[in-house]
Amino acid sequence: MNITVHFEKEQTTKDILLTGTSVNDLLEQLKINPETVLVVRNKEVITEDEILSENDNLQILSVISGG
C-alpha cells in the first residue's frame, strides 16, 4: 500500500510503498527503532500494532533530542 510519511528529524516528506500492514512493519522497513520515535496519524499518536490504510498520512516524531 502507498502511504505518505513526514519525518520530523529530517524535515522531509516521502511517499512509501509499504510491504507490510502495521506501524511496526513500516518502522522495520525504514530501519527505525520504535523506541526512538512516536507515530502520529490525523493528529493522534498511534501504537506500533496499529494497522495502516492506503493513502494514510503519517508523521514520525523523534523522541531523542538535545545533546
Binding site: E8, K9, L38, V45, L61, S62, S65, G66, G67
Partner: peptide, 12 residues
C-alpha cells in the same frame, strides 16, 4: 505532544 507544548525538534 499530548499536552501540545511547543517543542521544535532540535538536536545539538
Amino acid at each position: 505532544v499530548l499536552m501540545e507544548f511547543q517543542v521544535d525538534f532540535t538536536e545539538c
